[in-house]
Nucleic acid binder design. Structure first.
Lengths: 152, 152
DNA sequence: TACAAATATATTGCGCACAATATATTTGAT
DNA sequence: ATCAAATATATTGTGCGCAATATATTTGTA
């Protein structure tokens, strides 16, 4: 009774699949550009946050990037090892770890400023589409954050 | 990738970040539901393709899902080990490996039919937004596939 | 002031996702 | 027919991303 084009298991009907594919393809596009700065994409996101406001805690970074300590702790340790950030226990609350940029990390900012334009260059997509897309994806992210964890 | 005007390094102006976040959050939402079927999200995508048309090669799956053999080969081996698919060298071209569903894999289809509705249930987003979003993301995926590999 | 609950980060184990590389097979130009 | 180039898959090593769990610190309440 189900029409061919209403089959819920059709890959082309899925919303999640294009999002998954776009995320992978974007990461693939970013990789060689960010590699010149010695960064991965999630590391680049951490730097974007730190360049705006510092210090951050592991938790505040996780809230903003929607990641948990299982992802962030090893990532931040690698960034510390690379000399880009510092990790210090908060003296006023020993549970927390304060994340700050080092001088080397701050120096990266000027080079990173040219990353966005490098990416946009080869992409045949107009500004209106990008703005509309961004607004729609943001709405989805908001909706996804609103889903209770154990929800059926 | 950012929009013109203003600070290009502002997390809020990025288009890629919400896409990255949405992809992660969706995967997190899918995980427990698909776990009941013994599948991960990319494995689920492989099954969606195979339920439509079989057999596929590693390469044809990669073309459709935008993944390469480095990702697919170990993934498919795990699915074979789980008894969901078979992997056979193509007798007419020994370079290829034919991927087919097993009876056990085919049986999963009916249970999987309820996955999409289970996901949509808790999401406070209207149909129009979803359709518009899907169309915009598809356009981005198309544009991303059009970027030359060594592009600067 | 105890001390259980809440909070913050770290650890473990698994499965992607990718670049780089390796191996085997087929194709095509001579 | 030969053999270099192209094609298809596999392997290696690195870095996420996550659930589950562990550990340490702080908070709230009796």
């Amino acid at each position: 009774m189900t029409l061919p084009d209403s089959d819920p298991l059709d890959l082309d009907r899925q919303v999640c699949f294009p999002l998954y594919a776009a995320s992978n393809l974007l990461n693939r596009l970013y990789r060689p550009i960010l590699a010149e700065l010695g960064l991965t994409y999630p590391q680049y996101l951490v730097m974007l946050v730190l360049w705006k406001h510092t210090p951050q805690t592991v938790g505040s970074l996780g809230d903003m990037l929607h990641l948990d300590s299982g992802t962030l702790t090893p990532l931040l340790k690698r960034m510390e090892k690379a000399g880009l950030i510092s990790r210090t226990r908060d003296a006023t609350d020993e549970r927390r770890v304060l994340i700050d940029v080092t001088p080397k990390g701050r120096d990266l900012k000027s080079a990173a400023a040219r990353v966005p334009e490098m990416l946009g260059a080869g992409l045949d997509i107009d500004t209106e589409s990008i703005i509309e897309l961004r607004s729609r994806v943001r709405a989805l992210v908001t909706a996804l954050k609103g889903v209770p964890v154990g929800e059926s």
